[in-house]
Structures are given as C-alpha cells and as structure tokens.
C-alpha cells in the first residue's frame, strides 16, 4: 500500500458547554472506494478524535438516523461515498433547518411532535374484534399507498425544505406524505380527521412546491406530490361543502 491517498473532511463542530456557535474542524481520512462519509466519520471517532458526536445506527439506509448535510445537500451519510465527493474537502454539517444539539447531532423534538398530529395510524369507524379476523387488502389496494409507506423518518426532506426553514410551524413534507399514506389505505376511514389538521394554514398551504423534498428523499416517497394532491383534496372538499346541502356531505 504505502502511498494511500487521503481526503479532507470539513466537519461542523459545536460544543454547547464552550462554543458560542458552530465552527469548522478539518480531518484527513483515507480515501477508500468502499468508504462512505459515515465510515469516514467513524474513522475520525475511533482513530483521530473521540469527542466528535454524530448519530448513526444501521449503516444500510433503513434506520434514517445518519442524515447530515454533505457539501450542502441533505444525505444519508451511510449511502454517500467519499469518491463521489473527491477531491474534497467534503463539508459535513448537521441537517439544515434544525437546531443543533452538539456537533452533527440535531434536535428532532419538533419533528417528533409534528408526526402524530396527522394521526398516522389506521382509523376505523368501528373497530373489528380480533375474533373477526384481519382486515383484508388486495395487492392493488396495497399498491395505492405503498410508495408513501417507505418513509424512514430521516428528516432529509425537512432539511431540504426552505419553507420549513423559514416557518418552523409548517407541518412539513414527511408528515403530509405519511397522512397521504393512511388516507390511501383501503382499511382506513380517517381522511376527514387528517384533512381537518392539514387544511389549517400551517398544514399544506405553506408549501410553495419547491420540490426539493422529493429530490432528496432516499426512499423515493415523493412528499411534494403528496402535498399537491392534498391541496387538491382539500379544495375539492371545500367546494363540495359549499355546493352540497348539509345532509349529502
């Protein structure tokens, strides 16, 4: 080996006990073709600087915890290869639009508080007893919502969304896509309840269809499409509410 090439990492550091704000720290890591940004951060943590903090878990793009801004783009660091960002230095920052707890760790309280607001569970008019068996579903019915059920709550879409960055009250892409996932589920009867939440100003209307959420989504959930469809749904319901007599609603 001998002359193994290396690449620079420019990592955003923030230690709340001593730093007034985030600053940069540079590390040199081996540039290996099979290494991701997450591998490089683990190399830093294990070999160079044990004080560096970041979240990660599965290393295979399914847990959604290693999201960071890499060269300004929200990415899952476990799926972002160093060679694709050569020659570097690679800028690694905490996910945009969220408050920073320490180094690359963001505060996800706001997101965790928003998710349950859209009631992301199956709502039934009448709950069927366990003895009556399961709620059956055809493959076509599964297909209708499957795409929206692929969300891993990695929050990349929130980091990409300027509307969320400017107006933290905006309920955000993933939450609306998740609402759509349950609305489209043939077993669910909760569309009206979710619409009541999303028809509010901080629901779907803040979205100006930048489309970045869909572009950065590692699971191809298409939150931007879900939001526009929700607007149409809300508009249809509102028009019907005006046109139809009360009983017919």
């Amino acid at each position: 080996m001998g002359s193994e090439s290396s690449i620079g990492l420019r990592v955003s550091r923030y230690r709340p006990e001593s730093d007034p704000g985030p600053g940069w720290q540079e590390y040199d890591v081996p540039l290996r073709t099979e290494w991701t940004v997450l591998d490089a951060l683990n190399h830093v943590k294990n070999e160079l600087d044990p004080t560096l903090s970041f979240r990660w878990s599965c290393r295979m793009g399914i847990c959604g915890s290693c999201g960071m801004n890499v060269d300004g783009e929200p990415r899952l660091t476990c799926g972002t290869f160093l060679v694709d960002h050569a020659p570097g230095p690679i800028r690694v920052e905490p996910l945009a639009n969220f408050h920073v707890v320490r180094d690359l760790v963001i505060d996800m309280t706001d997101f965790m508080e928003k998710l349950p607001r859209v009631k992301p569970w199956i709502i039934r008019d009448e709950e069927q007893s366990v003895d009556d068996g399961e709620y059956l579903q055809t493959p076509e019915e599964l297909d209708a919502y499957k795409q929206f059920s692929m969300c891993i709550n990695c929050m990349l879409c929130y980091a990409a969304c300027p509307v969320y960055g400017l107006d933290p009250d905006f309920i955000g892409p993933a939450a609306i896509a998740l609402a759509e996932r349950y609305d489209l589920d043939s077993r669910d009867r909760g569309a009206r309840e979710r619409l009541d939440v999303l028809i509010e100003h901080e629901g779907v209307w803040g979205c100006t269809f930048v489309g970045e959420c869909t572009r950065v989504c590692p699971k191809h959930v298409d939150p931007a499409g879900a939001i526009q469809r929700y607007k149409l749904k809300a508009a249809k319901q509102s028009v019907m509410a005006v046109l139809l007599p009360r009983g017919a609603r």
Partner: peptide
C-alpha cells in the same frame, strides 16, 4: 438541551441552483 438555533439568511436562494 441547549441547542444552537440557526437562521436562514435572506440570500438562501442564491447559493443552490435549484433554489
């Protein structure tokens, strides 16, 4: 949690071509 609050600059849309 003593989180650091970042704010978006007025020129946030100049830096990225898609923005």
């Amino acid at each position: 949690v003593r989180a650091y609050r970042r704010t978006l600059s007025t020129w946030w849309w100049v830096r990225k071509p898609s923005y």
